[in-house]
Design a protein around this nucleic acid. Structure first.
Length: 274
DNA sequence: ATGACGTCCTGCCTGC
DNA sequence: TGCAGGCAGGACGTCA
């Protein structure tokens, strides 16, 4: 599942390859993945546009194009964006192929077909609602411990579902939320507004640490995730709770548990997460 | 504000 | 061995 570290890794692998290239065309095999505009307009608009830069916001990839347009991509769970110079093996999960003016191609593939693309003028109201309502970037300098604490204190909900709420904080998904809570020693069911000053500090650091470690290790490839060059990440080898139900906690030795919290499965250590 | 639930979709796992 | 059914999951809309 591409979360912040995976999307950031894709951005870093794609940006040097794509910057300055021009789209010469696009082939859409599964029209429904184009959220906006209508596929025929999408094709017409993107052809001839040059890629100026590639940014990330939360789990969104933002391709800055000439003419004031942005190509917005959300990979959801199994989406990928891979750059290839030569024609590679294209799978049945490839839904969009972008042709570039150096002869290379950019492939959007997605097994579960949940990922979506938008091609819109900057500031258009037709973008994904989630992007407009996105919370702060956890790795940004402006996201301070004080701001985090303030935001936590006015929410009574359990901490795990809150960390997954993209309008509260951007970029965390199930894997990194569980890892951060374990690292901070906080139960996923702990109410947000009753976290102590020390717990808040630990959680703030844990969130930033796990995200940075994820990026350093080029992302987590539990199943499908690959970067912009088609390569898997390494962080799955370093996970301490996610996907480790029944195995022993690397901190205290007790068994890692798994249960549904807010309709999402959570992995945690009942002994050392309070 | 909060939570529950359905929707999208396919591969994989379990149970018979 | 084969098949049916359930499960997982990110965002988002709807409803209570």
């Amino acid at each position: 599942m591409p979360e912040l570290p995976e999307v950031e890794t894709i951005r870093r692998t794609l940006r040097p390859k794509l910057a300055g290239l021009k789209f010469t065309g696009v082939r859409i095999y599964l029209p429904k993945v184009i959220a906006a505009p209508a596929p025929e307009h999408f094709t017409a608009i993107i052809t001839g546009k040059k890629i100026i830069d590639l940014q990330r916001r939360g789990k969104y990839l933002l391709f800055g194009l000439t003419g004031g347009y942005t190509l917005i991509v959300h990979l959801r769970m199994t989406g990928s964006m891979v750059y290839r110079e030569k024609t590679g093996p294209s799978s049945k999960y490839t839904h969009v192929v972008f042709y570039l003016d150096n002869g290379s191609r950019l492939f959007f593939a997605d097994l579960r077909q949940f990922g979506r693309l938008w091609l819109l003028p900057v500031g258009s109201p037709d973008g994904p609602p989630g992007l407009k309502n996105l919370g702060p970037e956890p790795l940004d300098k402006s996201f301070t411990r004080e701001i985090f604490e303030k935001k936590l204190h006015c929410r009574r909900t359990r901490i795990k579902p809150l960390l997954l709420d993209q309008s509260f904080i951007a970029g965390l998904g199930n894997i990194y939320a569980d890892e951060a809570l374990h690292r901070a020693g906080i139960s996923p069911e702990h109410p947000a507004n009753t976290l102590t000053h020390r717990e808040t500090t630990r959680l703030y650091r844990a969130i930033r640490d796990v995200l940075q470690e994820g990026i350093k290790n080029r992302g987590t490839s539990v199943r499908d995730y690959i970067d912009g060059e088609g390569r898997a990440g390494r962080y799955q080898e370093m996970l301490r709770v996610y996907n480790r139900e029944g195995q022993s906690c690397l901190k205290c030795g007790n068994q890692i548990a798994r249960r549904k919290i807010g309709n999402r499965s959570s992995y945690y250590c009942p002994a050392c997460q309070k």
